[in-house]
């Protein structure tokens, strides 16, 4: 479990990026974090595995204080990160060497590394590309290799910081399916994103503004207030917005429509 208590973070130039964040993330949860650029999402993400340490307040991972130097390795054994640009994360010339890079650095024995790499590539659906050069892969495939690298570290939590921002639509779809699959296998997933349809796939959505968590709830709860989301500079999934527009035109619809399938089912009965 991850627990964030009154977290404050100020950069060296004095800019306050986090201004009193409180949040708990349960084991096995799939949490999405949304908010405008500069709301503090990425700064928060970097606290989950101690890439940043709180200016004030605490972050605990399985009860371990992330600001204590002695806990650093155990925190990072528990929480892994995947970033926006796979090109910055891929280090090796062959896919499977890249996935093996992290476990090798941990000094794990070769047979165990082999098992981990095989399983990680299978998990992200990239086994067939094990001997490819990463430079020959599409953006979505590269990002799945970066995810396999995180999976091979066997962390129980993976934080994804805008993993699809640079991908084409099919790449986005592949990566989101991979993330859902990891969650289904029991991993705790924290997904930072600007794409509301991705946030709608989570169990819980936290909305950040000006360094704080403004509210958190199920996607249905969060996206039902279309006007509030727009005021915050955010958006809602297309089905939610279309339902809201139809309601204003006098079409009676349930208040919490979230997906195209739900909207289709209701409209069909009209």
């Amino acid at each position: 479990m991850i627990k964030v208590e009154n977290l404050r973070y100020a950069y060296d130039n004095g800019r306050v990026a986090l201004d009193g964040v409180n949040l708990e993330i349960a084991d096995g949860e799939f949490l999405a974090v949304i908010g405008t650029n500069g709301s503090g999402k990425s700064t928060l993400a970097k606290h989950f595995n101690a890439l940043l340490k709180p200016t004030a307040g605490k972050v605990y991972v399985d009860g371990l204080d992330t600001s204590a130097e002695k806990n650093l390795w155990r925190v990072r054994e528990t929480v892994g990160m995947v970033f926006q640009n796979p090109d910055n994360e891929i280090v090796a010339a062959i896919v499977e060497d890249d996935v093996a890079f992290g476990p090798e650095n941990l000094g794990i024995e070769p047979a165990e590394i082999r098992r981990r790499v095989d399983l990680a590539l299978e998990t992200v659906g990239m086994t067939g590309y094990r001997n490819f050069s990463p430079s020959k892969l599409s953006g979505g495939q590269k990002q799945r290799i970066a995810i396999a690298g995180a999976v091979a570290m066997r962390t129980r939590v993976i934080v994804f910081d805008e993993p699809t921002a640079m991908l084409d639509p099919q790449g986005r779809r592949e990566v989101l399916a991979t993330i859902k699959n990891l969650h289904a296998q029991g991993l705790t997933v924290i997904l930072i994103t600007h794409f509301m349809d991705e946030a709608a796939a989570a169990q819980r959505v936290a909305v950040m503004e000006a360094g704080r968590i403004l509210k958190a709830g199920t996607p249905r709860e969060i996206f039902s207030d279309v006007a509030e989301m727009k005021r915050l500079g955010l958006d809602v999934p297309a089905a939610v917005e279309l339902a809201e527009r139809l309601r204003r035109r006098g079409v009676r619809l349930p208040a919490d429509i979230l997906t195209a399938q739900e909207l289709a089912a209701v409209l069909k009965g009209k």
């Binding site: 099919q170 779809r173 195209a260």
Partner: peptide, 20 residues
């Protein structure tokens, strides 16, 4: 081309699949 229609078009296609 590795592309998908825009979200609104995807939604409309879904409505059509549902028989509307």
């Amino acid at each position: 081309a590795g592309l998908l229609p825009p979200p609104v078009t995807q939604l409309i296609l879904e409505l059509n699949r549902a028989g509307l």
